[in-house]
Amino acid sequence: MSLQYEESNEDKRQITPEEYLQERKAAIRVRSLWAIGFGIFAIVGSFAAIWLAINYFPEYTEDAASKSVFYFLFRNLYFLLGLFFLTVGIWGLYYAKKLKFEDLIPSPEAVEFARQSVKTTPYYSYILVGSIVAVTIAQNYVGLDESVEIAGFVKPYFLEKHEYWRILTGAALHGGFLHIFFNGYALYGFGSLIEYLSNRAHLAVVFLLAIIGGGLASLYFMPDVASVGASGGIMGLIGYLA
């Protein structure tokens, strides 16, 4: 048995399943090592930056004297991102080690899913991602702090001034480029899956209910912290898919 591998229109060669498997393993290892490298860089960089801030610039660090480095680390987006990439990279190396040629052959269900996904355009996902991107662009003109004050999920305003709409508008705001990038990417990925696998109207309903649920959880666990971002809605989409 052999596979046809096209390097160009003129150069073609035959490779065995074992050779193809080794090529796939090598490609996965390279990506995994890049992920591990980025993860280590982000983790070490975050640790160093926070340590320097606590020890040399305490005036810029909230309650620096009474908090440890690890307290600030787990509130730092770059550190959490580094942990994510490090975990994915390690898992990728393990996956490459265990990968078999049979795993590369798509099942009939996977082939059918691919065919259906090509026919389905995830309009709702486009609309949701486009909406939060548009709001983020508007934030850049208004200012991050000002936009959070105006429409963020500020808990005292929600409770004392009865501005209940903030639990929804806060989900449309984001705290920066990385925040909107990863939330937008996740929202499109999981949202389009729901549109492929289920009724696309479920995407809007689940996302809305998850935003409200996530907001209430934030209100309970962090009553004094203003919240922004669509993370609660994205967690709801993941739960729906599970």
Rank of each mutant, 00 (worst) to 15 (best):
E112I: 04
G239N: 06
G191S: 00
T169F: 08
L52K: 13
I90P: 00
F79P: 04
V129E: 05
P156V: 12
W34G: 07
R29D: 09
I127N: 02
V206A: 00
D11M: 11
L209A: 08
E7C: 10
H162G: 01
F207C: 11
P58A: 09
H179E: 13
Y5N: 06
A230R: 03
A134E: 06
R166F: 06
F85Y: 14
A204G: 03
I43K: 00
V205K: 12
V44F: 09
L83Q: 10
F221T: 08
P223G: 11
I50V: 12
A35Y: 05
V205R: 13
A172F: 12
E62P: 13
L193A: 13
P223K: 14
F177T: 15
Y196A: 02
G189Y: 11
R24F: 05
S107L: 13
R31Q: 06
L187V: 01
V129R: 08
K119Q: 14
L80V: 09
S107V: 04
F70H: 15
L203D: 14
E109G: 03
F38W: 05
A64F: 07
G37M: 10
G170A: 11
S46V: 15
G152T: 02
F79Q: 00
K100I: 07
G175N: 14
V118Q: 08
W51I: 09
D63S: 15
S117E: 10
T169E: 14
N140R: 11
G229N: 08
F181D: 06
K67V: 09
K67I: 02
I194G: 15
V69Y: 01
Y56G: 05
G170V: 14
I105W: 02
Y78A: 01
L73Q: 05
F57W: 09
K155I: 12
P58H: 13
A210R: 00
E146F: 09
I36C: 05
E19C: 07
T169Q: 08
F207S: 03
G170W: 14
S192L: 00
A53E: 07
Y185S: 06
A53Y: 08
V88E: 00
M235R: 02
E160V: 02
A53V: 10
A201F: 03
K67R: 08
S125G: 10
S227E: 15
K161N: 01
M222P: 07
D11G: 03
L86S: 09
V88L: 09
